[in-house]
Design a protein around this nucleic acid. Structure first.
Length: 262
DNA sequence: ATGTCGTGCTGCGCACGA
């Protein structure tokens, strides 16, 4: 059996619904982690997506942020919010246990803070959020089960993951502290799926709407799948569905899809 | 240097976030 797990920042589920439905029909992933749904739970187009055979869990918020998990398999438990700061009211984290045929698979949909402008309070929030994620991920790894942390990490891991490092040198997505925090998370024992099975530079998951970035091929790779050893051991491939970016009313992000022998 | 989207109301143009 192959289990496919995707991550896609849709930049508003309401504005993107036709594109999302088309892609779900074409790609038919088993599990989808969505980010930036930009709606409260009650506004999520649940029926349209359930009609394609998905179970739906959402952790929504008005206007900003919001994450969701879609699954063709039952969702056994769903845990909104990243532990570690009860004052944090931004909807950026949703974790769920999927009852896959091979057994439980834990997934999280992650919308990591952008952090610009840096330095400043938004960058401080980003780094604090990354440390909270690291601590929680450490707890999850101890379960020793297939675990995939899927999302928009707002982190360009390497210079070769953007078209021009000079443009990004002072940006919150590429600053040394951001990269160090991402590595600290990974070094707990995660495998970054694309890096493991492909690893080429200049394979992008985001092209800004501005400045003709898509037309010029000026992208960045910021959407990632982090796999526990039990998931990484079953990892068979990763695809970036670049053609979604060329459609009418496209999201600025592109879906990334991991295939697992699970 | 600029560029584009999406949201929501201080609402039919603007501010904000990305």
């Amino acid at each position: 059996m192959t289990l496919t797990v995707a991550s896609w920042n849709v930049n508003s589920i309401k504005a993107r619904l036709p594109n999302v439905l088309d892609w779900l029909k074409e790609a038919a992933p088993d599990v989808v982690c969505l980010q930036e749904i930009k709606t409260i739970d009650e506004g999520f187009p649940r029926e349209e997506i359930e009609a394609l055979g998905y179970n739906v869990e959402t952790h929504g918020q008005k206007t900003y942020n919001g994450v969701a998990i879609l699954s063709k398999f039952p969702i056994e438990e769903a845990l909104p919010r990243l532990p570690g700061d009860d004052e944090d009211d931004q909807a950026r984290y949703l974790e769920a246990v999927i009852a896959a045929e091979s057994g439980p698979v834990r997934v999280a949909s992650i919308y990591l803070p952008n952090g610009n402008p840096a330095p400043g309070p938004k960058y401080d929030y980003k780094l604090a959020w990354m440390e909270r994620l690291r601590r929680h991920a450490q707890t999850l790894l101890a379960y020793e089960e297939p675990l995939i942390l899927a999302g928009d990490y707002n982190c360009i891991p390497r210079d070769s993951d953007c078209w021009d490092p000079a443009v990004w040198a002072d940006d919150a997505l590429a600053l040394p502290d951001t990269r160090a925090a991402f590595r600290a998370l990974k070094w707990l024992g995660f495998t970054e799926a694309f890096e493991q099975v492909d690893g080429r530079g200049h394979q992008y998951t985001f092209y800004d709407y501005q400045a003709g970035r898509w037309q010029k091929g000026h992208g960045i790779r910021i959407d990632h799948l982090l796999c526990s050893p039990q998931a990484a051991d079953r990892l068979e491939g990763v695809d970036i569905h670049t053609r979604t970016r060329g459609k009418e009313k496209a999201s600025d992000h592109i879906p990334i899809v991991g295939s697992f022998a699970l």
